[in-house]
Amino acid sequence: MSDLKSLTLDALHRELGGKMVPFAGYDMPVQYPAGVMKEHQHTRAAAGLFDVSHMGQVILRGESYEEAALALETLIPVNVAGLAEGRQRYGFFTNDQGGILDDLMFANRGDHIFVVVNAACKDQDIALLQNGLPDGVAVEVIEDRALLALQGPEAEAVLATLNPAVADMTFMDVAVLDLNGAECWISRSGYTGEDGYEISVPNEAADAFARALLADERVLPIGLGARDSLRLEAGLCLYGNDIDAGTSPVEAALTWGIQKVRRTGGARAGGFPGADRILTELDSGTDRVRVGLKPQTRAPMRDGVALFASDDAGEDGGDQIGHVTSGGFGPTVGGPVAMGYVPTAHAAPGTVLYGDVRGKRLAVEVVALPFVAANFKR
């Protein structure tokens, strides 16, 4: 454990009673004294503050935004060049086999691209950018800023007490604004399904900024436990579980992230790693797909649970047809929820499958995602 990295706000998390656990090479708070259930429910009802400083922050600079954008398009199957200034978009790095190396967020900040990548893949992603982009595009790794997420229906009202201009932002807008005396890079986004913001703040200002937010009675600190249950209810993928280097964006039901200009016809169609497979799957479909799963008992079905078409585990019970990739209790749903991969022929909502839980096959229904409707400010 001595090799674990500490967050800038490590002392604050411990002061707040955070239970620290290793995650993606960092010492991270998994929960606070309120507990995962209360933290989850509070985020859905008011506002929760998450420390996501373990994630990677990177700036890409070319002679112009367009130069950097077209270069990045050689690594991701997403419309980067067409993104308007002051806007952010979801994307993913792909490999030559059409699998997902990581998912990411990127923003058009006028003269450069701001990229946020997952902590577990951070070193790999930075190396990919440094080695995969032309010499004319500089890759600047940001190591002197914390990253905090304020999420929930009260997030706007809370953050607006520090700068009213945040209320003018809508979902996926980005801005540079003064918050609590510090220059902050802000996006109206997050990974909970709720309205909210992600805020990059200078390390030296992070403690005072976090305390200013936590001083508001509408805000509670939230750990990794509730972050996971919130994103699961929102039907959002966790890299390494729901998507990985062997999973294509089409299998993962992320086709909405591949804009038309990168799909067919025109000078910018294709041209990204794994394009042959991904474009073929967009046209012809896939053998399997990620779906929502609603267990029909109170028993959660967690990562790795095998899925079958029949409840008969005997000689004629059939072979395993799929598996759960994420699962647990959904506090807002009031019962267990899960996601996983099943054959396309078994992917229609309403289909009943069976998960093997401790040797028993229990019914699970295929359902549409998300489990809890998104609450973004459009």
Rank of each mutant, 00 (worst) to 15 (best):
V117L: 05
D111Y: 05
M105T: 15
Q151N: 08
Q151V: 00
L128G: 13
R145C: 04
V115A: 04
P134I: 11
G99A: 06
Q130L: 06
I142P: 00
L128V: 01
E154W: 02
E140V: 05
Q124L: 07
A146E: 10
D123M: 05
V139M: 05
I142M: 13
A149G: 13
E143I: 12
A127S: 06
H112R: 15
L147D: 04
G98K: 03
G152L: 09
A138D: 11
G110F: 05
G110R: 08
L101T: 07
A119S: 11
L150I: 09
A149T: 13
V115N: 01
A127D: 15
N118H: 08
L147K: 10
E143S: 15
A127N: 12
A138E: 12
V116F: 02
L129D: 09
L148D: 02
D123P: 10
Q130W: 03
L150C: 08
L133T: 14
V117R: 06
M105H: 02
D102Y: 09
D125T: 15
G136K: 14
D123H: 07
F114C: 02
A119T: 10
E143C: 13
L129P: 04
A155Q: 10
I113S: 00
M105I: 02
N108K: 07
A119V: 01
L147W: 08
H112Q: 11
D125H: 02
R145F: 15
L101V: 15
F114N: 12
V139D: 06
Q124V: 13
V139S: 05
Q130R: 13
I113G: 01
L104Q: 10
K122F: 02
N131T: 15
L148Q: 07
V117S: 11
L150W: 06
F106D: 03
V137Y: 07
F106A: 04
L101S: 11
N131Y: 15
N131M: 14
H112P: 00
N131L: 13
A138H: 10
K122L: 06
D123C: 01
A120G: 08
L101P: 08
D125Q: 06
E140K: 14
G132P: 01
G136D: 10
G110D: 05
P153Y: 05
V116P: 00
D144F: 09
E156L: 03
F114Q: 15
N108F: 03
A138P: 01
A149P: 12
L129Q: 02
A155T: 03
Q151R: 06
I100N: 04
R145L: 04
Q124T: 14
M105Q: 08
A107L: 02
V115Y: 00
A155D: 02
Q130V: 08
N118I: 00
E154R: 10
D103T: 10
L147C: 09
D125P: 00
A146I: 09
D103K: 14
A155M: 02
D123Y: 10
K122M: 09
G99S: 03
D135K: 09
E156G: 13
V139K: 02
P153I: 03
K122Q: 03
C121Q: 14
Q151H: 06
E140A: 12
G152K: 10
N131Q: 14
R109T: 11
L129K: 07
A149S: 12
G132M: 09
D111R: 06
L147S: 10
L148T: 01
L129T: 04
